[in-house]
Design a protein around this nucleic acid. Structure first.
Lengths: 116, 116
DNA sequence: ACAGATGTGTAGTGTGTAGTACATGATACA
DNA sequence: TGTATCATGTACTACACACTACACATCTGT
């Protein structure tokens, strides 16, 4: 799924139940120009900045990390965590990256409620 | 440690044993202008791109992820791994980010030779 | 019917990135 | 004492990013 269609579909879904989710009104609440949101939804030009995407994700009630990923970005707090201990986190991510979803989820659970 | 001094110190260390590690010669092998490397080593202007930093790390025999981190960047292959499964990896990294080094290292080892 | 709202087209803006080009001044060394 | 190599200063550039401004045509609700 691409960023533009994903946003458009989500917005139109919300709009079916609430007219406040027109492109113009959403753009206004997010703090960008309607013409810009229109282009974003059609995938024209460069995707919004992290800040704008984060506000948009809150407005549309979708996961910010997913929206950022669709825009080809990674949340700056995750980047900061990696930069803080680059060797360690690079190793960890490369170790996890080819595991199936279930295995990664299990690691997360074990870390969370295990004794580390 | 900042990027510039880190590079400079490493290069001068190598240079004590091999005159081929002058700023000019290194710049030439890496494929950038000497004046630019000079500025990088003094922390002036924007840090090099990921590609340039990677070549520099190979030339100076230092960890590329560390060099990128000092430049405020994260390797694009790590970013791609996160973007591929954003919810999962965001969760994993946020779960690991406050653990002490030893605990993270242990997770890596367990993942690596455990049955996942 | 028409006032207001809606989505889109075109053009332009400021800022950052990742450098190059070339001149200048310092050092080494033979 | 040159001359070859060294580091640095100044100026400039091409391009991408993340938008804004505003006019325009279309649609909707009463």
């Amino acid at each position: 799924m691409n960023l533009g269609p994903y946003i458009r579909e989500r917005r139109e879904e919300l709009r079916r139940e609430d007219a406040a989710f027109s492109l113009r009104r959403v753009a206004e609440r997010v703090g960008i120009e309607p013409s810009y949101l229109s282009k974003v939804e059609r995938g024209i030009g460069s995707p919004p900045s992290e800040e704008t995407l984060t506000r948009l994700s809150a407005e549309l009630d979708v996961d910010a990390d997913v929206l950022l990923a669709l825009a080809g970005k990674v949340s700056s707090d995750l980047q900061a965590a990696i930069r803080r201990r680059p060797r360690l986190f690079a190793e960890a991510i490369r170790a996890l990256k080819d595991l199936p979803d279930g295995a990664v989820a299990r690691v997360v659970r074990e870390v969370r409620d295990g004794e580390w």
